[in-house]
Amino acid sequence: MVNLSVDLGFITLKNPIIPASGTFGYGEEFSEFFNLDQLGGLVLKGIFLNARNGNPSPRLSETPAGLLNSIGLAGPGAEALKPVIHRLARMTSTPIIVNVCGETDEEYLQVARCFDDMPEVKILELNISCPNVAAGGRCPAQSDSHTYRLVSQVKQRIRTPLMVKLSPNVADITSVAKAAEEAGADSLSLVNTFLGLAVDLRRRRPVFHNVVAGLSGPAIKPLALRMVWEVAQTVSIPVIGIGGICSGKDVLEYILVGASAVQTGTINLVEPGASLRILREMKDEMHRLGIGALDQLRGTLSS
């Protein structure tokens, strides 16, 4: 038997596999495919204060081993999400993580407070890194000072543990990570999607209305792995690795470079049962490598 549990300090997860925001709906859709109790946790699709229609078509463009998306965080709004969470919590004991979005600092705070008093919500993930909200793909996580200001403002007003989701679209991700840690983040999740561009050669126009879009999938794994490695060496709060995870081996690689747990993303769209397959593969790989617990592997990369 291998020990898969993960102690984040503020919560213990039964295993390190957490489906990421935007790739797992509101959880219940996946209960048709498997028992959600088997996950380490799950992150709901990002939520704003009010209902949003999202961006016009097209919203997706496939790339080699990846995809660009410009969904624009379509969703029902914070109040409408609450009954969905009640329903989900009756369906599964897996920790529910709400992905908190905002167009302004005030909106982030309002949305966070909306879920702060819900005992079913175990972690709030502050999504300061979505590239599909503002023009040009700008987001708070591209500025150390904005990150510090926003995270401390939210942290001071909520009790639920706060996970801050970082953007890879920066020159030095470690300085933003430090800003979030100093502002009181309980953990960091990284990375959100990489800014990319798709063009229509015939029409000489961008494919997407918002021009830039977010790249995800196996194509980004080495980039994301490098960033998780850098951040894990810089901060002392738990780091959740995200980016192109498709196999049990991928998960162990993220743990090796210092991640406490991981989020599976785009693969959930292609293979709804992927998170469970990845969990099985991870156990097998740990057996093969003689790793009894993830603590024995975490952050042991020697160079």
């Binding site: 709906g25 859709e29 078509s57 997706l60 969904i71």
Partner: peptide, 15 residues
């Protein structure tokens, strides 16, 4: 429609 997932998760195939 061009679809990402086909089961309602990615919100790509809107009309």
């Amino acid at each position: 429609a061009i679809m990402g997932c086909g089961f309602g998760i990615c919100h790509s195939c809107i009309i």
